[in-house]
Amino acid sequence: MRQSYEKELETLRQEILRMGGLVSQSIEDAVQSLAKQDEQLAKKVIAGDDAIDQMEVDIEDRCMVLIARQQPMARDLRIIGTGLKITTDLERMGDHAFDIAKVTVRLANQPLIKPLVDIPRMARMAQKMLTDSLEAYMKMDIALAEQVCLADNEVDDLYQQVFRELLTYMMEDPRTIGQATQLIFVGRYLERIADHATNIAEWVIYLVTGQRLRKK
């Protein structure tokens, strides 16, 4: 009985990693679509969101069934509890990728007010945080998880920079307000994605140690 239980727990972990992979790809495609004004790619991201949402539901169901049937304890319980939380974080990140792709569609037929530099940089950082947090989850690597938590500050700083820069564009030329606002939203979505990656890293620390990382 315990062998199949352990297999189920491992499957749960694999499913979370698979969902993480999908979300990561979705974020990458969304940002690419925006930078290259590629509407087709954006529509692919938008269409793919349902699959991510469905994965969240499946993972939640899997967790519920494990709780009901196995009465998990200790680390097993933490695998399932953190599974429920991580899947929510991933789903939200997927939503933000979806939101960014929507911006691409909205801006599809207008020239960009400026070449995008900081937003792709933010995107790379946020994405690295996600892949690192997933790797930390896969390897139960606390040191890597801690690095992810630290990286969040850099993304926050970069977001402030993006915000200020776009604000100056808007002050100089009110015709940019529409697009600049959309781009500020994108910055905000990326900043949120980084926050969710941080959450995942914190859950990894809890999963491994049973201790909460104190929020600063």
Binding site: M1, R2, P72, M73, A74, R75, D76, L77, G210, Q211
Partner: peptide, 17 residues
Amino acid sequence: IFTRPQDKRTEDYITGR
């Protein structure tokens, strides 16, 4: 004890391993 036991033997026992 049931969420984060300190001793590995406790963990093994309560998780059925």
